Simulated assay, not measured.
Amino acid sequence: MNRILVTGATGQLGSAVIETLVKKIPASQISILTRKEEKRVKFQAEGFPAYLGDYDDVDALEKAMAGVDTVLLISAGDEGNRRQQHQNVVNAAQKAGVKNIAYTSRSLKNRATLANKLMVDHFETEDYIIASGLKYAFFRNVLYLDAIPLFIGKQATETGISLPAGDGKVAYALRSEMGEAMAHVLLQEEWENKIYNFNGGKAYSFYDIAAALTELSGKEVKYTAMETTAFEGMMKQRGLPEPVIKKIVAFLTDIKQNQEAEIGNELAIHLGRKPIALKDGLKTLFGL
């Protein structure tokens, strides 16, 4: 009987995975690692073996992995030493005798030309997992469709869109649909060191997003492809710290260079349906 440990279980991606898993297997087969005691208690009451801890707590990781066959390592945020945190999880899995490890990586075209160097952590984690000898699955997830309001603002139908992303495209997909597909893989696939490129099957520019919002809202939404220096100046006027501005610009530069424009049908295959299209997703996200 396969027992799965989901780390980062209380985040939105982890929650989507668990929601699908528990429809197919008993909660007793799904172990949970969470940083919040109230969440641990809640999961425990619902029948999940739940453990308190994080990626820096090696003892907690080893305890949570006892009797586990498969670990889903949901990527840590970039605030701490993410590479070391991921390595802690891999090392604990080896020590605990875990057979399989799945990692939520990122769908990026070329690691050698990334402007956002924080994204390199994902590829280095993949390298470390491969070197560990564990059977693995890498879920290379594209930028969440859910993130569009964060980039363009919830008032974009009133203000328009101004970003230094040129006509670069992204094959956006909903976070919940990627979590659902990941759960299906964890339950159904044989573990033979596979890579899954999960994207929406069609790539869109911010011109496309503006056109979709125009159609949905009935108001003309214009996208202005700003120069980077002008955008940086605008962000400074808004009071954003320099490191934050640099991070945002690097992210948008990778979009401009089509790092996230790769398309395929693997998400649709593992969902068992077509992923939600851009226009339908925007309609929900913007309440239109």
Score class of each variant (00 low, 15 high):
Q155T: 13
M182N: 08
A60I: 05
R238L: 14
G53Y: 03
G97D: 10
R111C: 08
A212L: 07
I263H: 01
N100T: 06
A230G: 11
R83V: 12
F123N: 10
D127A: 08
G272M: 08
M65N: 04
E19T: 08
G11S: 05
A92G: 08
K39L: 02
L252C: 10
E19L: 09
T159R: 13
T7W: 08
F139K: 00
G281E: 01
I248M: 14
I161H: 04
G287H: 02
S205L: 13
M119Q: 12
A181E: 12
I269V: 14
Y136L: 03
Y172Q: 11
L216I: 01
D146F: 05
Y128L: 11
G201T: 06
D78F: 15
D280G: 06
S205Y: 05
P26T: 02
K36C: 03
Q259A: 05
E126P: 09
E46N: 12
K279V: 12
L61I: 06
R140C: 14
T157V: 15
L150I: 09
N91K: 04
K202P: 04
N116T: 00
F139D: 02
P275A: 10
S15P: 01
T228G: 09
P243S: 01
F139L: 04
Q188C: 07
T228S: 14
S15T: 15
L33C: 04
Q237A: 15
Q237I: 09
A64W: 00
V98F: 09
A225C: 14
